[in-house]
């Protein structure tokens, strides 16, 4: 395992080995975190969450991940447009860098902003979502969840249903799931697909009925209310009627198929309540796994040596207990 990582800017940059390594590290954190323990890998390190776009769960997830590794967190919420503030993105970031933190976790509504910051700063940068580009830790936590629930990703059919065109979650998932051997298909009204969906390197269909019978995993994406104002579809109720995952559509699924959603859910739009709360839903597992995966990323970026040392002792402990651990 090679735990070191300079930045995490996009899932597209990660090799299959790096993805597997991060998932393996996350798995090693699972038991102690589930038991309420913390792990001293980020002691003395400060992680700054620099969020230029509203987000509660991703920020909290990174915050919990840092604290579980005994690191310090500093939250910096800035207005979306740096220009309206009179300070540029680079100036804001350089000011924070001058306070000598160890890592910047960045969310921004403009694609490529983390890449831009990574070029301007000497700090490691972790992308927590940039525009429609990528949300790599979401892709990792989804892959982790599928692995946990279905055993293996290779050969599985994953259907991503919803606003593909404007989704960083879909892009990161496609990169990661394809590298891990899944077959991926996307489904949305044509207005919510990229102009040429085949460029994503996946199958696609306009109607869910065509894809659901073969799916092992369905990932429903959140529908943003403003898309209706942008005339991407006529109404939320029409979206729900033709693309929402409801009881009827769920009947098309194989018995073991699971349902993911990155949250927050619009109940009654992309997911019916009975589906969101039903036995196929693994949504809350995703939330827990998100902490593990972000711990793995932060540890790999900020403290690869401490991480290696911890993994060694964890492995020894597992072997001593005679437990089978991946």
């Amino acid at each position: 395992m090679e735990p070191g990582l300079r930045h995490l800017l996009s899932a597209g940059d990660l090799s299959t080995a790096q993805i597997q390594s991060l998932l393996q590290i996350a798995r090693a954190f699972s038991k102690p975190i589930n038991d309420g323990e913390s792990i001293p890998i980020l002691q003395g390190k400060t992680i700054v969450n620099l969020f230029f776009e509203n987000s509660t769960r991703t920020r909290i997830s990174f915050e919990v991940a840092t604290r579980k590794l005994q690191g310090n967190v500093l939250n910096f919420a800035a207005s979306t447009s740096s220009l309206t503030k009179g300070e540029t993105l680079v100036d804001t970031a350089k000011n924070i860098e001058a306070m000598r933190p160890h890592c910047l976790v960045v969310r921004h509504s403009s694609a490529g902003s983390p890449n831009f910051l990574a070029k301007c700063l000497s700090l490691p940068v972790v992308n927590a979502g940039d525009g429609f580009h990528e949300h790599p830790t979401q892709g990792l936590l989804d892959a982790f969840t599928i692995q946990e629930k279905l055993g293996e990703i290779k050969g599985k059919r994953v259907v991503i249903l919803g606003d593909i065109a404007h989704s960083r979650v879909a892009r990161s998932n496609i990169h990661i799931l394809k590298k891990l051997g899944a077959s991926v298909a996307v489904c949305a009204p044509p207005t919510l697909l990229p102009p040429k969906p085949e460029v994503l390197g996946v199958d696609y269909a306009y109607r869910p009925e065509e894809l659901l019978p073969d799916a092992d995993v369905v990932m429903a994406l959140r529908i943003q209310m403003e898309r209706q104002e942008q005339r991407q579809f006529p109404s939320l109720s029409e979206y729900a009627k033709f693309w929402g995952l409801n009881k009827e559509r769920a009947k098309l699924l194989k018995p073991h198929a699971i349902i993911l959603h990155p949250g927050p859910i619009n109940r009654g739009v992309e997911l019916d309540a009975e589906i969101a709360d039903g036995p196929r839903s693994v949504i809350l597992d995703q939330v827990f796994n998100g902490v593990l995966v972000r711990m793995a990323v932060l540890a790999a970026v900020c403290a690869p040596e401490a991480l290696s040392a911890w993994l060694k002792t964890a492995n020894t402990a597992t072997v001593n207990k005679g437990g089978a651990h991946a």
Binding site: G112, H133, P194, P195, K196
Partner: peptide, 15 residues
Amino acid sequence: NESALSTELGLRGNP
């Protein structure tokens, strides 16, 4: 430009 690359980069396309 709206293209495969704009989809990949997550930037809004101008067709």
